[in-house]
Structure formats: structure tokens, C-alpha cells
């Protein structure tokens, strides 16, 4: 039986899981959207991933967790930050990447990579949700548009309006008064995305702009966020297949390193991983479907 490794990105709004086999083939990747740092989300993503991979829990011998809730998972052999994992995952997906923009639910990061793909420096939003997925979520609610539709709606606008508030709550008030003034939803949404783009450009300025730029994280799937960011940065962004699972992929690759640097032979305590996984998955509140959303499998080999 082949050994496998698990990378878990326990984000603020989604959980992502990637399983690699010992040869570095991606055998499963799964995203589950279950709201704020939820165990249920992790369980759903894990179930989905195991279903996809068609392997036993006992096949997993190394686990690395990342993301906002990384320290909440006692199944992890070690935790690594999302900055390091997104950099590793993005570079694996796009080997020529020199800059990674990751806009997640709770924070946004810009990571500069050196020529050999290592993190050279990074910048992260400091203290509020400005420029993050949360900002989009709050404002989607304010204009009464589904989160997944807001990008397409924003791109229908022929004009934009400036959203000046940095804070998501103040921006919500601003948006409500714009609606009251009769501004079209699309125009407001364009302004919201423009605002995200300008915050991100500020972070890019802190680490320096280096092409090619890869965008990862959930917001990479928002076409308006990408559009306004490309406009602001005056460059094309590479959005790889599996952009959302880049962090989990990075975590899995670190787990693979650990496996390769140790003996491939099953260790005595490998059973501990299985036991912990069993315990985590044995929660009575089983959720269906197992996986909130199946990613198009990434064809990555580590």
C-alpha cells in the first residue's frame, strides 16, 4: 500500500484538503464552505477528499495543517503558516511565479518569491477586513447579491464609484447610502471590487511588483476582483486551476518533504494519524454531501 500525505488549509470560511501519494501525485483535492473556522467544514473536506482518493485512513502517514485555524487540528504533525504554504503551492502550480497574491476570507497577503521560488518577503493586511473576502461578503449582503454572482454583476457596470471606507462595517454604511442615493447595484459593486484592488496594490507596493504574478485563494475565482486588480497592477494575473487549494497543496508538499526526509517505512506512531483521523471523522453530525465542492483535480506531481 502506498503512503499518502495530507495538507489541510483550515481557513476562516472554507476548509481545503489535498492528498498526495508518496510519489507526489495529487490523488484528491476538496473544498468545503462551512462558515467561520468550522470543524464541520474540515470534516466535510476530509470526507470528500478520502472519497475522491479512494484510500483508507491508514494510508495517510503525514499531515500538515495551515490557515487561520491551523493550530486547532490535533491530527497535524506540524503547522505551517498560510504565507509559506500558499507560496509553496502557488510555485508548484506555476513554477515561474515571482509574486503570489492570496486573498482569503480573513486576510490578504502578497508574497514575493526569489528566483529559486523561496519566500523573499511578504506583506499582510494589518488589522481589518479591508481588502479581504470578508469585505466582499459583507458588501454582497449589503447590496443583496449572492457572493458568487457579485463579480459578474460588477463587470456589467459601465462606471464605478469610490468606496472610501477601509473598514467593512463603515463601507457597508457607505454602500447603503449609495443605494439610497439611487446608484445602480452594478456600479456600487464595481466600486467595491476596485476598493479591494487598491488595498491589494498597497500590499504589492510593500514587497515590490515582480512578474509573473499568481493569484490564489477564494477571491481568485471572482472575475471582477481579478479584472480590477489586473487593471490596477497593469499586468495579467495567472489564476491556476486549483487556485483555491494552493495553501492546502503547499501544506501537503511540506508533508511530503517530511515523509521523504524520514524513512518511507511505516513508523510505529503512524497509527496515531489514523486514530486521530478516525476520531475527527467519527463526529456524529455527519454532513452531506461529504464535500462542499469538488475542485477540478489538479494535475500536479511533487
Amino acid at each position: 500500500m502506498k503512503s499518502h500525505v495530507l495538507g489541510i488549509d483550515f481557513g476562516s470560511t472554507t476548509a481545503k484538503v489535498v492528498i498526495l501519494d508518496e510519489d507526489g501525485n495529487t490523488v484528491a483535492s476538496c473544498v468545503s464552505q462551512k462558515g467561520a473556522v468550522s470543524d464541520e467544514g474540515v470534516r466535510a473536506a476530509l470526507r470528500g477528499a478520502f472519497e475522491q482518493a479512494g484510500i483508507d485512513l491508514s494510508a495517510v502517514v503525514r499531515v500538515v495543517s495551515t490557515g487561520y485555524g491551523r493550530r486547532m487540528l490535533d491530527i497535524a504533525d506540524r503547522t505551517i503558516t498560510e504565507i509559506t504554504c500558499h507560496a509553496r503551492g502557488a510555485r508548484a502550480l506555476v513554477p515561474e511565479a515571482r509574486l503570489v497574491i492570496d486573498i482569503g476570507g480573513q486576510d490578504s497577503k502578497v508574497i514575493a518569491l526569489d528566483r529559486s521560488g523561496l519566500v523573499a518577503r511578504f506583506a499582510m493586511n494589518d488589522r481589518c477586513a479591508a481588502g479581504t473576502g470578508k469585505f466582499l461578503e459583507v458588501l454582497a449582503r449589503a447590496v443583496n447579491v449572492e457572493l458568487e454572482d457579485m463579480g459578474a454583476e460588477a463587470l456589467k457596470a459601465e462606471d464605478t464609484v469610490a468606496i472610501t471606507s477601509m473598514c467593512a462595517t463603515f463601507a457597508e454604511t457607505e454602500v447603503i447610502s449609495l443605494l439610497a442615493e439611487g446608484r445602480p447595484k452594478q456600479v456600487i459593486l464595481a466600486g467595491v471590487h476596485q476598493s479591494i484592488a487598491s488595498r491589494t496594490v498597497g500590499l504589492v507596493g510593500r514587497v515590490g511588483k515582480h512578474d509573473p504574478i499568481v493569484m490564489t485563494g477564494g477571491v481568485a475565482q471572482n472575475i471582477a476582483a481579478v479584472h480590477f486588480l489586473e487593471k490596477a497592477l497593469e499586468t495579467r494575473l495567472i489564476i491556476p486551476t486549483g487556485a483555491q487549494i494552493a495553501g492546502a497543496l503547499g501544506a501537503a508538499l511540506f508533508a511530503l518533504d517530511d515523509l521523504r526526509s524520514a524513512s518511507k517505512v511505516k513508523r510505529d506512531d503512524d497509527d496515531a494519524v489514523e486514530a486521530k483521523l478516525e476520531q475527527l471523522l467519527a463526529d456524529p453530525q455527519r454532513c452531506t454531501p461529504a464535500c462542499g465542492k469538488k475542485e477540478t483535480p489538479v494535475t500536479f506531481k511533487g
Binding site: I83, T84, V119, F122
Partner: peptide
């Protein structure tokens, strides 16, 4: 950046952990 009124400690933790990881990975390379 620190403030009298407090800093977001989790945010700082992620930054510092990433910084330490960056140094370790560069050193290993």
C-alpha cells in the same frame, strides 16, 4: 506596527511564524 490600543495578536503571530519559516527555508536551501 504596535499601537497603544492593542495589536491583532493572531495577525502578528502569523507574520512572525511566516518570518521564522522563511528564514529556516532559506537557511536550508
Amino acid at each position: 506596527e504596535t499601537e497603544h490600543d492593542g495589536v491583532a495578536m493572531e495577525n502578528v503571530r502569523t507574520k512572525v511564524e511566516s518570518f521564522v519559516e522563511m528564514i529556516k527555508v532559506q537557511r536550508a536551501a
